[in-house]
């Protein structure tokens, strides 16, 4: 069994998440080859064949050309699996490769269960195993689901790869995240507000609880999207990744993207009306209550 692992490169650097692909391929027991649109100085420290396309020629985001490069490497390797991280790069590129390969795609694999691909659905409330049809398949793996242990080491056997292809998309550059007034990554205690707080006015109740704990206010994505809390407070894949000593999730159901940003906290308390909410799966303590009623009682008890 052979796997082609498509590494990620951003702002001139190999992304460390690329090694998660390696960890997954090892779980699969696959022989590995790699593809990177980057440069030799930032090549992954791995053993095996590395197809290297120069980022200066193809750019960091250019899906049409990157697809052509993946297909060129596929033509040389004939892999059983082409594997991406389920990221803004991977979920954008993987279906393009799947269509070109006439292959089935399994998205955001969270685990291997008896050799089968397990994925999560309905906000983590269900799981299923998915089988691709015979022939090559395209896979994306959930960020953080397959951790690479240890220091990467190895020297790839580099083969330059080039394609001639046009693209309809022009990449104009990056826009950095807004810098806010708070650095949650340094906080020891974070009390976060989720959709369960109901409306903007109620965020104050959670902010009061954060104050009673002597901690910072965090928030889940829907709360930030709705404009109730500033983006600098957002915890999760598209916000900050935090690992405080105590994380209190208030009215947060526990979408995968949020969990990815806080599951490494030392101690997790969830306050939620829904006893079955996925946040309960990783919480050390689940308080089954309406957070708007419970938070003031708890704040008073702490104060």
């Amino acid at each position: 069994m052979k796997a082609l692992l498509v590494c990620e490169f951003r702002e001139g650097k190999l992304l460390n998440s690329s090694y998660e692909l390696l960890a997954f391929a090892d779980r699969l027991g696959a022989e590995k080859a790699f593809l990177l649109v980057g440069n030799a100085a930032e090549a992954p420290k791995v053993d095996g064949k590395l197809y290297l396309a120069q980022v200066d020629s193809y750019g960091e985001y250019n899906p049409d050309q990157h697809k052509a490069l993946v297909m060129a490497a596929v033509a040389k390797e004939n892999p059983d699996y082409v594997i991406f991280l389920h990221s803004s790069y991977g979920w954008d590129l993987a279906p393009r490769v799947a269509v070109a390969l006439k292959a089935g795609q399994v998205s955001e694999i969270v685990n291997l269960v008896d050799g089968k691909f397990e994925v999560s659905l309905c906000n983590g409330k269900l799981r299923r195993t998915v089988a691709p049809q015979a022939g090559p398949a395209v896979l994306t793996i959930q960020a953080g689901a397959f951790n690479f242990a240890g220091e990467p080491q190895g020297t790839p056997q580099v083969e330059a790869i080039e394609v001639a292809s046009a693209s309809g998309i022009e990449f104009l550059g990056y826009e950095q995240a807004e810098k806010g007034d708070v650095d949650l990554t340094k906080a020891e205690i974070i009390v976060s507000a989720g959709r369960g707080v109901g409306k903007k006015e109620n965020v104050a109740i959670i902010a009061n609880l954060a104050k009673a704990f002597g901690g910072e206010l965090g928030a889940s994505r829907p709360v930030v999207d709705a404009g109730w809390v500033e983006h600098s407070h957002q915890v999760g894949t598209t916000g900050q990744t935090v690992s405080p000593k105590l994380y209190v999730a208030c009215g947060i159901s526990g979408a995968i993207q949020h969990l990815a940003g806080m599951k490494k906290s030392d101690f997790i308390v969830a306050i939620n009306k829904d006893k079955d909410a996925p946040i309960g799966e990783i919480a050390d303590v689940l308080v089954v209550a309406d957070v708007l009623q419970f938070a003031p009682v708890l704040a008073a008890r702490l104060g």
């Binding site: 951003r10 985001y61 803004s88 022009e170 990056y174 826009e175 995240a177 807004e178």
Partner: peptide, 15 residues
């Protein structure tokens, strides 16, 4: 603007 990880965005243009 495409949303990338960690609050970063990628700006794209196409016809």
């Amino acid at each position: 603007k495409r949303e990338l990880e960690g609050g970063m965005k990628g700006v794209v243009k196409f016809a």
